[in-house]
Amino acid sequence: MESFLNLTIKVWHQKGPTEKGRFESYKVEHISTDSSFLEMMDILNEKLIKENKEPIAFDHDCREGICGMCSLYINGRPHGPDDDITTCQLYMRKFKDGETITVEPWRAAAFPVIKDLIVDRTAFDKIIAAGGYISVGTGGVPDGNNIAIPKDIAEQAMDSAACIGCGACVAACKNSSAMLFVSAKVSQLALLPQGKAESKRRAKNMVKKMEELGFGGCTNTRACEVECPKNISVSNIARLNREFLKSEFSE
């Protein structure tokens, strides 16, 4: 049933990438438990605009959990206190009346803050550019049913392909490692017959790029898997390691 909350929002403010940031606290009142977390942020921003203050900048777009743009670190958890969701799918019914909610940006050296809660995740695009694809051009490809792909393999590939590139795995990791992100793409394409031809090269190039961009290494804490909104499994990391080792041995 719908009820209403009065809350204190303690939120990170940072004017620009090189400026020093700080926390600022705001009160919001009469927030419906049926509203989403981002709608609560909209209400707070509306209030700030009324007071002639600058609203808090945060990334968001589809608001249905698939574009991967929203990226808030809420009460110490990427995407906040619910499981298998992105921030935009977090509902206020997960909070208690009178609570103080702390909101921060993703914290990782490879994701510098642009403003307030917005970070720069172009490093992920660079990793994909380094090899996160099957090298086929447009046209001149065989019929879709030419290669039979067993249902369970297609399903496994789909599990890995479900990654939305939000970066919660990096934010959750004490080493700021991007291994879950990299491994999900490497796995999806290595599982499928179409992607096998260049799977070793792909693993090597993507890992190399990841290291170059300042992401840390994996120490198997599995924090990434716990916080992943799309349930990407760490077994992908094991598969990435296998592909990577194969590429090392074949040299």
């Binding site: 086929v136 490809v141 049913n145 039979a148 249902k151 297609a154 590939a157 392909a161 999806q188 179409q194």
Partner: peptide, 22 residues
Amino acid sequence: NNIIDQCVAQGVPFAREYGGVL
């Protein structure tokens, strides 16, 4: 029809039947 072929070649994990067809 070209689109489906193109996407399969790119590694889009379309749903499959048990026999492996789309």
